[in-house]
Design a protein around this nucleic acid. Structure first.
Lengths: 96, 96
DNA sequence: TTGATGCTTAGAATATTATCTAAATATCTA
DNA sequence: TAGATATTTAGATAATATTCTAAGCATCAA
């Protein structure tokens, strides 16, 4: 649901996480080290990002590796463009 | 600040308001009539949208007319694209 | 000028979210 | 197996956000 994506993106920590993953996959510990926050809190944020499918998680041994998934952005951008162009999108409510 | 834009967009009511304004400007009362919500609550949402510069407001007589402003989307879309393309954006933190 | 209409602001109640500590689970290593 | 490391889950607390009612301000129309 698109709702989850907007929710996930409405937080500076989570947006920063996505920016860090831009350079490549990182595990939960590596990500957590970049923030002034407990691992539990980080895990919470990572859960929201994974729920929104903005990241993929993969367990490798004792580590959990997170990787950016940008395919979800397509829907958001189309929605924004549909507001810009009167011709496109025709008030599609499936994205709200 | 981009923070306000993400915040403003993280709400189904506010996203629906923007969709309604897609067809053209509407006053606060016309917008409010489309939602099951008091005028005070609507006013709150319109304030957040105006703060984020996603809408322009103009007073005409006793009415306050709201109009969509999509220029703000540019920044969000660039940020998303910078996550998609490794080549672009180069971890610019001004958008977080 | 009085009353009605349109909209916003103030303040309170409720719901949601972010964060923490403590504890649990899973994996690795000696 | 025992202990150490990596991560998540549970439960509590504090901060934010949504919504309401009541009251306020501005404008219009009689």
């Amino acid at each position: 649901m698109v709702n989850k994506v907007w929710k996930a993106l409405d937080d500076p920590t989570r947006r920063r996480i996505l920016e860090l993953l831009r350079e490549g996959p990182l595990n939960a510990g590596e990500l957590g080290a970049r923030f002034n926050m407990t691992g539990a809190s980080m895990s919470h944020h990572l859960n929201l990002l994974a729920d929104a499918e903005l990241v993929e998680r993969e367990k490798r041994g004792q580590f959990v590796i997170y990787e950016l998934n940008t395919t979800v952005f397509q829907g958001l951008m189309e929605w924004m463009l549909s507001l810009k162009d009167k011709t496109k999108g025709e008030s599609d409510e499936s994205n709200t």
